[in-house]
Structures are given as structure tokens and as C-alpha cells.
Design a protein around this nucleic acid. Structure first.
Lengths: 279, 279
DNA sequence: CGGTCCCTTGACAGCCGTCAACTACCGTGG
DNA sequence: CCACGGTAGTTGACGGCTGTCAAGGGACCG
């Protein structure tokens, strides 16, 4: 079952069979079952553990003192979260399950030892964390610049690509256990508006929903609506050698000036205005 | 000059004089000057460097294919950014200066060696990265749930606390070199609306602006407007011992159910509706 | 003194939130 | 078999926050 973690890590860095064996040796704890829509807390005697999600969906979220709350990401099987998020005290966010889930607690000490012995593991974990951060940055971009429809489409695209990476899709169909309230909490809109946006996407022939399954009818158009590119997910299946170290000039192909498009009826118009010239 | 980095790190973990000496030994490169509103790219022969900001403000930002762009955070003196963000290829975001800046490139290999020799450095850097991630999560919460006025107030509070931590404030006055366009790009609104929100804050007697300086007139009220708590910044001046490892039940004081308040004229109403019961 | 950048203002429109009510669905129990 | 209750999804009316457009003003600089 914890092959899920190996499957995921191998997407970010090619693991040797020794790496995998070393990881398996650490994964000897007893998996813990957590019901749907429950808080997850570290039950072990020490909070110095890493939680690996073996089955189900989980979401970290944050809330304001007046009760408003925001989902920060969705975790799917193979994902892990570092309980160090507590930063030595109360964490700045909380974790709850979306569906029935099975989590495994790995002792940090043992895991760190394994990453010392098997450098491939260290690189895979490190890269994994960088990707998590990249996803969070993409959410900032989404919440700041995309409108509700684009954000919703983008969320679906992100989940589809990530689930496909751990082989949890069947062709164009994926699990989609989120309620509209959870979608709303993730894309920063009200539940009512999330409903309208989802209807909009269905009406446009982009997706179909049946029960807790979601079918992508036209991935290309959906990605176009979302302004989605899978680049930030770095799902290269560990094929590339990231360590060749060829120096490149960053962002050479970026426009020399920041621009914002005019928006007309939620769609960017052809013309853009120059802005924050890059000098 | 690079004492700025030490000053900042010491906020996150108490550094011994050996730690500091070890860090200074790595900081022997020549600082590079970058003009205002310029792209920053890694100029060194290898992209395997860490950039430390010694003077000025810098902002990473991301943009959509149609030209919309979003600022991801502001970096102030003492902050550093890992060029590994490139993830082995083109990065998913870009970096540009807000003001005239001075940056220092540290070779990753040497820095990693130093962190092996001086574990205090490793802990300080690690904690620093965790705080960066926490700030990003707070931005997600802001962009998703706070309205424009709250977001703007929150941004000002965050910057004020962070600048104070590196002793770059004079009593209630801080540098504030951002144009309204940059504020808008950070809080995800149009420039025109950013202007209105700033006027609103000034009109409410919360802040004053003169040139590139901003004076906080009533920090308590500003934080109340922003629903700001400095907790996520973890600016404990390294006083607490983070390694005592006392197990605690996470989030014990969180409400057992997620709730969202009703919003009336942008203010949450007294009553909240239950939502996503935690079981 | 013309140009550029930045800030400001007003009118108008549209995305999105709020409220309230309704439907569909599902498992439980009589 | 149907009543029932709870959860999730849906709809319509209305209003407000926020974007867009256009124009003008002030500060700074060559």
C-alpha cells in the first residue's frame, strides 16, 4: 500500500532499488484509519513525524478569527506532510480529511537517517517539497488573478494531472469527492457561486459529474479556460537529469515588461497595457 | 553589511558565535548592485547559488499567459531565495527588484558544507524556509477570504513586523517603496482599487504616507482591520527552545466545526452558519 | 518646458456574495 | 411500504465589492 509514496517520489527523482528498499524499511509503522471530514492530529507520542497519505483525500486549511476559512491545497494518495509545520508550537494551519483516509506516520529520525544513507531519497523528498511550494505559488496566482471560473477549471486540471501521476485516473475519469462547499473553500468563493461555476463548466461541455466521479470531456479546452500549464507540477517522471547544471539565463523568454490585459466580460481583451516596465 | 542575514537568522534560532563565524566565512563573495525595477537572474556560472538580499526590496512574481501577473511576496533585507526554485529548468516564477538593491550570491556547496559543520545554521535556515512557506499560506488565506481593505492592511502589518525584526523601522515609521500598482499586484486587485483602499486606510486614521515612508498611526486598529496576528511570522527572537519536543495535541483550541460568517457590507455579521461539521 | 511616472477621481458595469427557498438523494426506522 | 431527517445541490432576486475606462493633476527630470 505504501508503494503509493514510492510511486510518487519516483516521479520527481529516479529511485534505485536500494533507495526503495531503504524507504520501505522506514515504512514499518501501522497505518491509521481516519474517517471522512475529521481533524487529523499527530497521535504519536512525539510530534516529530511525517504523515504519509496512503488512501483518501486530505486538505490543510487555515481560518480567520471571525470564522472564515480557506483550503490551502488538496493532498492525494502518495502525498506527505511534515508535522514540523508546527514550527515548535501550535501550527498555523490545520489538517482534515475529505474522505475516509489511511495515513502512515513515519518517525522523522529514521527517515532522516534513511535519506543520509540513500541520497536518492533525499533528492526525491527535497524535490517533492519544492513542488509543493510551487503548487502553493500557483494557488496565490490563481486566487489573485484568475476569476472564479478559471480558478475552478484550474483546480480540476491540477487534480487530474496529479492523480494521473499516481495512476489514480481511469482514462478521462477521476475521483472527485469534494462537495461544492469544499470547492468553494479552495477557490475562495461562496458555495452558491461555486455551484454556478461548476454548472457553467458542465454546460460548456468541459466536464461531467456522476456521483463522486468527474469526467474530463475536453482537457484541451478545460486547460485553455484555466490558463493551465502543467509545468509547475514538474511531473517529469524522473526522466530528466536535474543535476547536469547547465547554466541558463532565467526567464529569457519572459516579456520584458509586466503587462495586464484589459478584462471584458471576464475575458481578457486583445489589447494589453504596459505596466511596471522592466527597465 | 551581510550582518543583515545573521540578524535575521538569529530571530529564528539562537546562533552561537561559531555559527556566525562559519556563516561569515561563506559570505565572501562580492555583493552585486541591481537597479530598481529590474529582473534579477543568476549571473554566476552555475545556477547553484543562494541569493541573499542585503539592501533594498525585491519581489518574486508569477504571470499568466495572457499577461496578468501576481506578486508572490516581498523580500526585505536579510531575506534570501534559493535559486533551486528553478527545479532544474526554467523556474515557475521570476524575481525583480522594487528598489535599488544589493544582493550577494552564496555558492550552495559551501553553504551546505557550513550547515553540516554548524548545525545551528542548518536549523536557522530550515526554520527560515518554514516561515517563508507559512507566509505564503497566509497570502493564500488573504487572497481567498479577506476583502481588499483587509488584504491591504494585512500586507502593511506583515511588512511592518518583518522590517522591525531586522531593525529597519524607526518607531512607527517604515520604508514603503511600493507603488500602488505593486500593492495592487500583491493583494490581487486593480490599481484603481488599490488607490481607493489606501485612501480608505488613510482616511480612517490608520496610516500616513509621505513619499516612500509609511507611518502606522494605530497598529492595534490596523491589525484588527486586517485580522492580523503575527503568529505565523514566528518572530520569537530565538528565545524559545524549539526542540523540547513536548507532545501536544494539535489544534485543540480550534472550533470543532468550520464556520463562515455572514458578510454584511464587507464586515462579518454576528451570526455564523455551521459548515463542514467536523464530526 | 515637455515628458514620464505616479496618483486621483467619477461613471458605469459585472463578478460575486447574501438570503431564502426549494429539490434530490440516501439511509433509517416505523 | 412510506415517513422522516440530514446532507448536498440548485435557483432567483438583490446588492455590494471591485474592475474598467477615461480624464486630469502633481512631482520630478532632462
Amino acid at each position: 500500500m505504501y508503494e503509493m509514496l514510492i510511486l510518487k517520489l519516483a516521479h520527481f527523482y529516479p529511485l534505485s532499488s536500494e533507495d526503495k528498499a531503504g524507504l520501505r524499511a522506514v515504512c514499518q509503522g501501522r497505518p491509521r484509519h481516519v474517517g471522512a471530514r475529521q481533524q487529523i492530529s499527530s497521535h504519536s507520542s512525539s510530534h516529530d513525524t511525517i504523515l504519509v497519505l496512503l488512501r483518501g483525500w486530505v486538505c490543510p486549511y487555515k481560518h480567520l478569527s471571525d470564522g472564515r476559512w480557506q483550503i490551502l491545497s488538496f493532498q492525494v494518495p502518495g502525498d506527505y506532510f511534515d508535522c514540523e509545520f508546527q514550527l515548535g508550537g501550535e501550527g498555523d494551519y490545520a489538517l482534515r480529511t475529505v474522505t475516509d483516509s489511511i495515513v502512515l506516520e513515519l518517525p522523522r529520525k529514521q527517515l532522516e537517517h534513511a535519506t543520509m544513507v540513500y541520497p536518492g531519497l533525499a533528492k526525491a523528498f527535497r524535490r517533492c517539497e519544492l513542488v509543493q511550494a510551487a503548487v502553493l505559488r500557483e494557488w496565490v496566482l490563481s486566487l489573485g488573478q484568475r476569476n472564479a471560473k478559471e480558478r475552478c477549471a484550474h483546480l480540476i486540471c491540477e487534480l487530474f494531472w496529479r492523480l494521473r501521476a499516481v495512476e489514480l485516473t481511469q482514462s478521462d475519469v477521476m475521483d472527485f469527492p469534494l462537495t461544492q462547499e469544499e470547492v468553494a473553500g479552495a477557490i475562495g468563493v461562496s458555495t452558491v457561486h461555486a455551484n454556478r461555476v461548476l454548472q457553467d463548466l458542465r454546460g460548456a461541455g468541459l466536464i461531467e459529474q456522476h456521483g463522486k466521479k468527474l469526467k474530463i470531456l475536453d482537457l484541451g479546452r478545460l486547460e485553455a479556460v484555466a490558463l493551465f500549464t502543467p509545468h509547475f507540477l514538474n511531473l517529469d517522471h524522473g526522466i530528466r537529469d536535474f543535476d547536469d547544471g547547465v547554466p541558463r539565463d532565467l526567464r529569457r523568454d519572459y516579456p520584458s515588461a509586466l503587462r495586464r490585459p484589459r478584462m471584458v466580460n471576464g475575458e481578457p481583451a486583445g489589447r494589453v497595457r504596459p505596466s511596471l516596465s522592466a527597465g
